[in-house]
């Protein structure tokens, strides 16, 4: 590909105070208009990658090696203040839990409009116009009522739509979607995935999509990074991953995903022997380096 990637992570290592490495040598690219899924079990470090890109790691966790290139900006070389200003203009987050992500004591309207004014320097009228447009786009029918509502007055699916509208409103180059549908039931999940896909295709936004569900990976992404213990096990096109997974861990993750259509498949947890084996390999590599 000749396109310059929107996001280019090069051998990123992220370390917990005390020295434990939570991510090790993670490299991945996201091209404009591409959805890259980050998949793995709890604790594999998939959300950590998104947080490292957005610069919202907890204070005791720091990127120690490697580079994050966001649209030609070398993020790890910047001071925290420039970094925050740069990232907030280029990238947005769709968080997992739509209730805690919205301020409970402010109306929806200002929560969408304010960042457009204060971060992106838009006029209030333009920002309001854009908020209405996006809410309309995520199929919220009574736009004016929703803008005047408080978060608790909306259902989970509605709140997630509001956050998607808010993330897409400034037309960001990159969106980090951190398990945006885990809290929703399947029919709402499908609507939300469809909205993310439509908006992403229209705007050409690159998306880093964090999930533990191989079913969601199959539907939404073009490329996948499979993570285990902070390392990338497999990086491939989604098509290839499902046709012909290269890594036994990828295969095990697919096998662990329930499917009503294929009852012959075992629907079995990732075998403990495989996990032990992977940990042993990692320990051996670390001892060697």
């Amino acid at each position: 590909m000749t396109d310059r990637p929107t996001l280019d992570i090069l051998q990123l290592t992220v370390t917990l105070r005390g020295g434990r490495k939570l991510l090790r040598d993670v490299s991945l690219k996201v091209q404009p208009g591409e959805v890259r899924a980050l998949v793995g079990e709890s604790g594999a470090g998939k959300s950590m990658i998104g947080k490292a890109v957005l610069g919202i790691l907890p204070p005791n966790i720091k990127p120690t090696e490697g580079e994050i290139l966001l649209d030609t900006h070398h993020l790890n070389a910047m001071t925290p203040v420039t970094r925050r200003r740069t990232v907030s203009k280029i990238a947005s987050l769709i968080p997992q839990d739509p209730l805690t992500a919205l301020n409970p004591v402010r109306k929806i309207g200002p929560q969408i409009v304010d960042p457009l004014i204060h971060i992106h320097g838009w006029s209030r009228d333009k920002a309001r116009e854009r908020a209405r447009e996006l809410l309309d786009r995520v199929q919220i029918r009574n736009t004016d009522r929703v803008l005047q509502s408080y978060p608790h007055e909306l259902s989970g699916g509605m709140r997630q739509r509001v956050l998607i509208a808010s993330a897409f409103a400034p037309s960001p180059r990159l969106i980090v979607a951190d398990e945006p549908t885990t809290a929703l039931d399947v029919t709402v999940q499908k609507q939300i995935l469809r909205l993310i896909r439509e908006l992403q295709q229209e705007t050409g936004t690159a998306v880093l999509f964090v999930t533990h569900d191989m079913g969601v990976v199959a539907k939404i992404s073009q490329r996948v990074s499979v993570l285990f213990a902070g390392r990338v096990m497999e990086d491939a096109a989604t098509e290839d991953v499902f046709r012909n997974p290269q890594h036994p861990y990828t295969e095990a993750l697919i096998a662990a995903t329930p499917s009503y259509s294929d009852l012959n498949r075992s629907f079995s947890p990732v075998p403990p022997a495989l996990i032990a084996d992977l940990h042993a390999k990692i320990a051996a590599e670390e001892a060697a380096s």
Partner: peptide
Amino acid sequence: KTLLDAIPLPELDPDWF
């Protein structure tokens, strides 16, 4: 039927949406 269709099965299906 809607509930069944909404489940993202771990298999490729370009027409799912």
